[in-house]
Amino acid sequence: DETGKELVLVLYDYQEKSPREVTIKKGDILTLLNSTNKDWWKIEVNDRQGFVPAAYLKKLD
């Protein structure tokens, strides 16, 4: 059920640097789980959840 889920576009590649982070690729469109922290957003990638720098993402309307 995708209702109410926010999507984000990945602006730059990011390689995870800790187990709490996930790797993302430029151009991916992913589900945003939590954006309350202005610097690190929690997203879902391939059934994995983790954090990436918010500056690497853009919210889609």
Rank of each mutant, 00 (worst) to 15 (best):
N34P: 03
L7Y: 15
R20E: 11
Q15C: 10
G27C: 08
L11Y: 03
V22K: 02
Y14D: 01
E6I: 14
K59L: 12
K38V: 09
N37W: 07
V45L: 09
P53E: 02
G50E: 04
D39M: 14
W40C: 06
V52F: 01
D13N: 08
K5A: 09
L9R: 06
V52T: 02
V8R: 01
D61P: 13
D1Y: 12
N46P: 06
K17I: 08
V22G: 02
G27I: 01
V10Q: 00
D1A: 11
N37S: 10
Q49F: 07
N34G: 06
P19I: 09
Q15Y: 15
K38E: 14
I29Y: 05
E21R: 04
L9E: 09
P53S: 02
T23L: 02
K58R: 11
F51M: 07
E16W: 06
K5F: 13
R48S: 06
K59G: 04
K17Q: 15
L7H: 14
I29V: 12
D39N: 11
D1Q: 13
L33C: 07
V45Q: 08
Y12P: 00
K17C: 11
T36Y: 09
I24C: 08
L57G: 01
D47P: 03
V10I: 03
I29G: 00
D13R: 02
W41V: 02
T31H: 12
N46I: 10
L60G: 03
K17D: 06
L57F: 02
K59N: 05
A54S: 13
L33E: 02
L9P: 00
G27A: 03
S35Q: 09
W41F: 04
L30Y: 10
L33H: 05
Y12V: 09
L30F: 08
L9W: 06
T36A: 13
F51V: 07
K5N: 10
T36E: 15
N46S: 12
D47Y: 09
T3F: 11
K38H: 11
I43L: 07
G50L: 07
A54K: 06
L60M: 09
K42F: 15
Y56C: 13
A54I: 04
K25A: 08
P19A: 12
Q49P: 05
N37R: 08
W40T: 02
L7V: 08
D39G: 08
D61V: 11
I24Y: 03
D39F: 15
R20G: 15
A54R: 10
K17F: 06
V45M: 10
L32G: 01
Y56W: 06
G4K: 15
E2Q: 14
I24P: 00
P19H: 10
Q49T: 12
P53I: 02
I29S: 02
L7M: 11
E2G: 13
Y12Q: 14
I43A: 02
T3P: 13
V10P: 00
K5R: 14
D28S: 11
A54F: 01
L11C: 06
E2S: 15
V8A: 07
Q49H: 09
K59F: 07
Q49G: 05
E2Y: 12
G50I: 08
I24K: 00
K25T: 10
Q15L: 13
D47K: 10
G4S: 14
V22D: 01
S18T: 12
